[in-house]
Nucleic acid binder design. Structure first.
Lengths: 197, 197
DNA sequence: CCGACAATGTTAATGCCTCTAACATTGTCG
DNA sequence: CGACAATGTTAGAGGCATTAACATTGTCGG
């Protein structure tokens, strides 16, 4: 079984330890500050050891991305509407999405940077299933102005754009009191653009 | 003056040549494939030469980003509405923005990755002034549902999100016939979310 | 129970990169 | 025209990714 370190030769749970190390390093230094070598040191292992678990640096980053997607999914699932209002729920989910990006910008970038990732990977969209569910209920209630697919894409794109431009330090997004600002941006998109007012 | 190469010792216009080389390399290999060393080779100069013009790799990338912003600005300015319709113009400008990202994804990423860039840099938003003008006319005509600032942020974010998710290979965005798809996403956002229908 | 094999680590070596230091060549301006 | 600034060059110090060859353990079939 994968257990704790025993002999000090075989680590015992290197794969997971490396992902943990990578998460910390990325959070501290950004993606560029991350290196297989640094992760190895942090896991107390030689620089060549990671290659027993990941084909290359990119593969480790992909594993990190998986963890990130999972966390994003959890955060979105954890959102509860204040008063059963589906539109309000959607807004809160969007804000949670942006909050994730702002709190862990480097991880967010890794998560959504699919260069060198298997195009078939389904993990991504899966994390966003919750948004689809909320929108689905709105559609069922006949409150969508557009198709479910379009609504999904529009919501996702807008929220993603706010997140990206914010962590990219674009002044209009990053300066003022952020949460309020974001509410002002997303609300009219939902009520008017997506949902019948 | 900065002229062409004369003595084969002093290049004559290395700074610009390095930026050009970087643009090509980034387009061909992506940001990761770019290196000061490769740019030096392409410019026919030693690997240490760039340091006479750029403090480090990052500074060259910043210069590249400036060029990118300029090109994006030009593309947006070049957009003309079919029939004097401001909303239609806005949509076309948004599509041009996404098209830029799709045609030159690596450059687009460099442009909007402000890590390690001077936070005071004004070049970015300046390129988007055109969008502000279009929205300004709509506001003057009393057709905005939200403040000019909010409209600007919402439009920018949505368009940016579509661009990013598309080049990041998110299936919902990248698969189908793209231009039409994008129209479907952006139109309801404009007519309903931003502009009074 | 035990030895072979798979799994997982280690060391050593290659090659590329960034960046700095010390030195060379030119252009220009007083 | 000669000194200085600008711009290139070579050499060299670290860092990282990746691979090859070798070492140590775990485990499973006989």
């Amino acid at each position: 079984m994968a257990a704790m370190a025993k002999s000090s030769y075989h680590h015992g749970a290197l794969e997971s330890a490396l992902i943990d190390a990578a998460l910390v390093l990325i959070e501290e230094e950004g993606v560029d500050g991350f290196s297989l070598a640094a992760a190895s040191r942090r896991a107390g292992v030689s620089v060549a050891a990671p290659y027993r678990h990941f084909a290359n640096r990119r593969e480790l980053l992909n594993a990190v991305a998986q963890r990130g997607f999972a966390e994003l999914g959890e955060r979105l699932r954890a959102v509860r509407a204040d008063g059963g209002d589906e539109v309000g729920l959607l807004l809160e989910q969007g804000l949670a999405y942006v909050r994730f990006a702002v709190e862990k910008p480097a991880l967010f970038r890794v998560v959504f940077d699919s260069r060198g990732r298997d195009p078939q990977s389904t993990v991504g969209p899966a994390a966003l299933a919750v948004l689809g569910e909320t929108l689905g209920r709105l559609e069922a209630a006949g409150r969508l102005r557009v198709s479910l697919d379009t609504a999904m894409r529009l919501c996702w794109a807008t929220v993603h754009g706010v997140a990206m431009l914010t962590i990219d330090g674009m002044r209009t997004f990053a300066e003022e009191d952020s949460e309020t600002l974001r509410r002002h941006i997303l609300s009219p998109m939902l009520a008017g653009g997506v949902v019948r007012p």
